[in-house]
Amino acid sequence: MTEVAVVAFAQAPNVRRTHGTTNGVEMLVPIFDEVYTRTGLSKADIGFWCSGSSDYLAGRAFSFISAVDAIGAFPPIHESHVEMDAAWALYEAWLKIRMGEVDTALVYGFGKSSAGDLRRVLSLQLDPYTVAPLWPDSVSIAALQARLGLESGRWTEKDLAEVAARSRRDATGNPRAQFGGETDVAALLDADPVADPLRRHDIAPVTDGAAVIVLASAERARDLADRPAVIGGIEHRIDTPSLGARDLTTSPSTRLAGEAVGTDGVEVAELHAPFTHQELIVRDELGLGDAVRINPSGGTLTGNPMFSAGLARIGEAAQRILDGEATRTLGHATSGPALQQNLVTVLERG
């Protein structure tokens, strides 16, 4: 089967609030331009398009349909859409190239989380009969997960603050991050919890954003990028939605996806962890040791654009290879409450 590579990645600035529409066109048009310029491709050269977004984020049905205006989708295009983070749109595009149907694909995700009350909207992901009618918000669900780890000794509050401090420090080198800066772990721990046991620094911000990745067959990729990032493996799995029926301090789906991909020799990993403790869970399930550089972009804790944050992790991981800084990197994406669904991809220098 055909090998597939990432040849370009771009993302909109991660910001608390844009003035744009929920269709994402204002965020997408400039980043499409960016990847066209970088690859020399035009829209007519793209064999397949796939996007990820959510109607509930926008508050209306079919919000993704207007987003195709950003493409200029006439003459008609070969296109699909997943109601998931765009990391899964990348998976669908990977299939299309792998099966030889097309040799280029453009994948994008977008979301304007600021349009609604994100943590309340996300409660609609829970069981609609016995859980969602109580409106448990996404931050409170994560806080229940965090406490289980704290009380079982899986992690400490200091461990969590260290994840936050490292993320903020690394984000200072990322011009697209929502915020960053040098912070002191002790100072972080002095703050009062906002959703006990979680403090502000444990929780990813609310972010408007978008991201785009161009994929090509390995053969075509050589013409489009100096150092294409070849997808060595990409796998995803899901766990039971029943929060009370699984050990929330683990993520079996992450472990299964990681084992299927093979994570040995990874130098850099971009992990999609909207809460500090979730980074520790994912890292552990993927068997990433201390030598692995985690989230050099600052990660999701410094910018969490819903429905493109997972794609952006893959993009950041690929960028290390495109830039010649690494030879084997890992991108991870998550979806659903408490790390329910997870995707892992390993990228390699071609």
Binding site: S54, D55, Y56, R60, A61, F62, E83, M84, V121, L122, L124, Q125, L126, D127, P128, A132, I238, D239, T240, P241, S242, S335, G336, P337, Q340, Q341
Partner: peptide, 17 residues
């Protein structure tokens, strides 16, 4: 089709079992 029809965001998540 649209999640608003059933009032469940990404219902495939809760349908996994």
């Amino acid at each position: 089709a649209p999640d608003l029809f059933e009032g469940v965001m990404m219902p495939e998540l809760f349908l996994a079992d």
